[in-house]
Simulated scan of single mutants.
Amino acid sequence: MSTDFQQARAALGARMRELRTESGLSGRALAAQLGWPQSKVSKLETGRQSPTTADVVAWAEAVGRPDVAAELVGRLRTLETQYRSWRRQLAGGVRPVQEAHAAQGRKTRDRRSFDPTLIPGLLQTAEYARAVLTRYAGIHPSISDVEAAVVARLERKSALSDRSRSFHFLVWEGALVSRVCPTDVLAEQLESLVPLLARGNVRLGIVPFEADLRVPVGAGFSIHDGTLVITETWHAEMWLDDPADVALHVRAWDALAESAVYGPAAHRAIARACKALRRNR
C-alpha cells in the first residue's frame, strides 16, 4: 500500500472523526445508530479500513451533517481513483478491468509507456495474452474469465490504427526473453513486433541489456496525455493524476527513452531474442 494512499485514507478518517465529535456522539453511540460493530467506526476513523460510498453517506446522515456527504464521497473517490487493489478489481473478473482500460484508452490521445517484464498489452497476440493472464490466475484466484479478458484485450488494439493518436512504447530487453508462455508463442509474439518498428503513429523502442541507464529499470507504467499515470504492483494498480506524481514518471520515462534503440537496432534486439529461443527449443 502506498504511503500517499495511507495518508489520504488517514485524512479521510480524521475528517469523519471530526464530524462525529462535533455532533457530540461517542464512537459506541454512532456504531449503535448505524448498526455497525464499534471496531468498524474505530478502523474507519484511524484509516485502517477503507469505507464504501454507502458508509460515508450513512456517516454524514448519522452525525446530522447530510450536507457533507458529497465532500466525503469526493474524498473517497480520490482514494479509489489512485489506488485500486487487485482483490477488489478482480472480484468481478478480468474483463471489467480490461474494459476500464479501454475506456481510458478511448480518451487518451498521446500514450507513453514502459514495460520491463512483459510485452505491452496493446501489442500482445491472443496466445501471449492468454498465457500471461492464465499465469496471473495462479496468484489471483478470482481470475476465472481469461477468455473474455483476452477478447477484451484484443479489442483494445484497434486504437493503434487511429492515426490521430500517438503511441510510444519502451520495452526492456528482458521482456523479449521472459518465458511467460511457451517458446512458440513467444516467438510468434516477437515476430509480430517487427512491423511496428516502421509505423508512424506507433513507436517501439527497446532498452537493451548493454545500455547505459540514466535510471534503474523499475516498475512498468503508462502516461496518458501527460495528465495521468497508471502503474501497478502485485497487490494493486494505481491511477495517479497528481501533477507531481505525473512529472516524476515523465522524468523517469524521458531517462529510459534516452537509453532506448529504434529501427534497425531494435530489430537486432528482437532478432537476438528470437535466435536465443531457437537455440533453446
Rank of each mutant, 00 (worst) to 15 (best):
A269D: 04
I139P: 06
Q6W: 07
V57Q: 00
R153W: 03
M16Y: 13
E45L: 09
T53A: 15
H249T: 12
P216D: 09
G47W: 14
R281Q: 01
V217E: 02
Y128A: 03
R84T: 02
P216Y: 12
P51E: 10
S50C: 13
S142A: 01
A62R: 08
G205S: 08
V180Y: 00
A58M: 09
P37I: 15
E18P: 10
L277K: 04
V246N: 03
A257N: 14
R111K: 08
A70N: 08
V150M: 07
E127A: 04
G93V: 00
G24H: 11
H249Q: 03
W172I: 01
R203C: 00
A11S: 13
A152P: 11
G47Y: 13
Q189G: 04
C181Q: 02
A14K: 13
G200R: 11
A10S: 09
S142Q: 03
E71H: 13
P243Y: 08
T21C: 03
L34I: 15
P243H: 14
R84A: 09
V246W: 14
A137N: 01
A11H: 05
K43A: 01
W234V: 12
E99H: 12
L186S: 07
L213I: 05
V202H: 01
I139A: 15
S166L: 04
Q82G: 09
R130S: 11
V261A: 04
L248T: 10
A102V: 12
V229I: 04
A70D: 10
R75G: 05
L197Y: 00
G47H: 13
R109L: 10
Q7S: 15
R75T: 06
Q104D: 14
L277V: 06
A62S: 13
A126Y: 08
G93N: 01
R112S: 10
N201I: 09
E80Q: 09
V68Q: 02
V246Q: 09
A247E: 12
R281E: 01
D67C: 08
V94N: 00
E80N: 07
V246K: 14
W36A: 15
G27Q: 14
E22H: 10
E232T: 13
T3K: 15
L228I: 08
V202E: 00
R111E: 11
W253T: 00
E61S: 13
D241L: 05
G93Y: 05
G74L: 12
Q49P: 04
I139G: 12
H235N: 15
P216I: 06
R203M: 11
A175E: 05
G74T: 05
H140R: 09
E258I: 09
A265N: 07
A266W: 08
A69F: 12
P216M: 10
E147P: 06
K275C: 04
R77W: 13
A260Q: 13
R281V: 00
D145N: 01
V217S: 07
T231Q: 04
I119S: 00
P66M: 10
P120E: 08
V261N: 02
P195Q: 01
L90N: 02
K40M: 02
R77A: 06
A159E: 07
Q38C: 05
E191F: 11
L72F: 06
H235Y: 14
A257Q: 14
W86H: 13
A102N: 05
R20D: 07
G13A: 04
L25V: 06
S23R: 10
A14P: 13
P264Q: 11
